[in-house]
Design a protein around this nucleic acid. Structure first.
Lengths: 341, 341
DNA sequence: TTCCGTCGTGCAATCGTTTGCATAAACTCA
DNA sequence: TGAGTTTATGCAAACGATTGCACGACGGAA
């Protein structure tokens, strides 16, 4: 790699254009009044010298990085990667860059990464998937711009964007009941996400509302990781008991796929013997066979919205509304079938 | 959000510790000689005031951002997201941050993003999936540190990390031949990736080596996007002809899944009637049914290696070796079966 | 004691922009 | 024509860290 050709600064441009650095700066930033003639001259000098403003110097002076931090527990999971994609694209659209960081290691790592804000390495942060009970977050949010995506803690009023998980669950169960199911199980999780709690509540309430008493034996918990393997395990527990459920509401698509493959292994046909509903609607649900019936979350839009809220606050000082709910949608495909009542 | 409590600078720390700012700087950076006593005093002052160095000022002065740029055509595709994850984790380990940018819009967008380097917004760049023929890249690489992941152009000598695609394809075809297949088709793509070209060459050479003449009618091209839908289309073309192939070598797992589901739709059983091999070994291959036989790429490690090479160059001035090949691996699962000869 | 090398520290310049203030020129309007 | 206003520009001081250079103190060798 050859030595970078002597960096050209705003001073060089000023000299070339026979004006002061201030004027060049004003032209480039379109701030202050400058005559059209000068503008033209400056642009020509910029072009002639191939000047590129030093973002570092600019950021330093203006005390803004035009960069946001995104913390995600995982970036290979399609649910998160779609959100990340939404955030990322919207950021660029609004002339911001974004640092995406895995925080697999949990709270300690989150805290460590959040230090980027006091260090002036980022202007604001979007948190994906924070668990409940992190009260220290409130203090942090009083000092720095922050938006939470999908998950939040109702007791800690931090601006957040999500879907209505309770309603979504209720709708899913209603649908199963409507097509004739009475013995409806669920594969939930032991994590501390609000969404998990709300979906469980929706599941129970919808059953009760229909006059069906929720049964403990129809409820199974997958691991915190929402992994395929733990979906298999949970499904096995539910389906291999005597008088098993005829329908399963899973709180994620991956879990649902595990459930379906497990059902097949046990010798049950999906959807003829058991119906399965997933949650999220990640791409692979349509490639899976049978194609998954699921509750679709607008992941990409969720991400976009988070970025939009945060950046409008950063760039224009607009305050961030505490709660934004985006619409979900039941997508009925092949993994559910009606049952003669 | 309340006003950030008056930022504390290195000068405040210096005052508190009764030393000069230079000394504080030297303590914090562990550069130059300072007495243990002073070190102690400075650290106490830092702690007492809750001082966080202003990264912006530091970067500006040192002319380094400790940030790398990663350009990917897509971040939701699990193949890429695993690489990104590897890069990302390794960067953090080496105390660097990374900007991840989608460059869906193609070359123009790549060029635009690469401008972050002359603008001093990043110190180096990792390119995922560059197509061949981008000769302007050579000039760029002479001025800035750059590493290419997976794809590169042999005519443009830029440091790169990848697997041996030719050999991998040859192995896959050998395997199919060994288990009794003679009519072997391939689903390739019309993109301009070197990997595509090499895999095609490997496919043909392996057949010829085994005394089988490659037939045009056994070769189909999916779209440039490697999408599921285009995999379905290509498979349909291949399998619905008279005397169809008994095995399919697909250049990506998603394509393979499309092929398998299409085969099923046509009424062919996989693997009994037709064997299918994928490429990449993304997570979902194991959740798919039948589980996919495929050529595994070490995506995460690929990413790690790229980051390691780039960062060692950035941080320690080590030169980057032009070519790094990581091992691939055939993973035999359920989508292939031997055929009575 | 004198000389020299090493150690520990401070001074002040510097990095490239932005921006508050001052000012000169050009207009407006009575 | 002169006073007041607007327009266009330059000057110089920041921003917060790092770092080359200088200097005093100290220790050991001659």
């Amino acid at each position: 790699m050859k030595e970078r050709s002597g960096m050209v600064t705003i001073i060089d441009v000023a000299k070339e254009a026979n004006v002061s650095p201030s004027t060049v700066s004003r032209v480039l930033n379109d701030t202050g009044m400058i005559s059209p003639a000068t503008v033209e001259i400056v642009y020509q000098a910029v072009k002639k010298l191939g000047y590129e403003p030093n973002v570092l110097a600019r950021s330093f002076r203006k005390k803004e990085t035009r960069t946001i931090l995104i913390l995600t527990p995982n970036m290979t999971n399609p649910y998160y990667s779609n959100i990340l994609s939404g955030i990322s694209d919207m950021s660029r659209e609004m002339n911001y860059s974004s640092f995406i960081c895995n925080t697999t290691a949990g709270t300690a790592q989150v805290k460590e990464m959040l230090n980027m804000l006091p260090k002036h390495r980022a202007d604001g942060v979007i948190l994906l998937a924070s668990e409940m009970g992190e009260t220290w977050l409130r203090d942090f949010s009083e000092n720095y711009p922050i938006v939470q995506c999908s998950e939040f803690d109702p007791d800690i009023q931090i601006p957040h964007v999500s879907i209505d998980n309770y309603k979504a669950a209720v709708e899913a169960i209603h649908y199963l009941i409507r097509i004739g199911h009475r013995k409806i199980g669920t594969i939930s999780s032991t994590n501390r996400y609000l969404s998990t709690q709300l979906r469980m509540q929706g599941y129970k309430d919808a059953l009760i509302e229909a006059g069906i008493e929720p049964e403990e034996r129809f409820i199974a918990n997958a691991g915190k990781d929402y992994s395929y393997a733990s979906g298999c395990l949970a499904a096995n527990q539910l389906l291999s008991q005597p008088d098993p459920p005829t329908a399963l509401f899973c709180i994620s698509d991956v879990l649902a796929m595990g459930a379906i493959n497990t059902a097949k292994k046990i010798g049950l046909r999906v959807p003829q013997d058991v119906s399965v509903i997933g949650f999220d609607d990640v791409e692979q649900t349509a490639m899976f066979s049978p194609q998954l019936t699921t509750v679709a979350q607008p992941c990409y839009a969720l991400g976009q919205k988070c970025a939009e809220l945060l950046l409008k606050n950063l760039a224009r000082g607009e305050s961030i509304s505490k709660e934004t709910i985006l619409p979900h949608k039941m997508v009925i495909r092949e993994s559910t079938a009606s049952r003669a009542v």
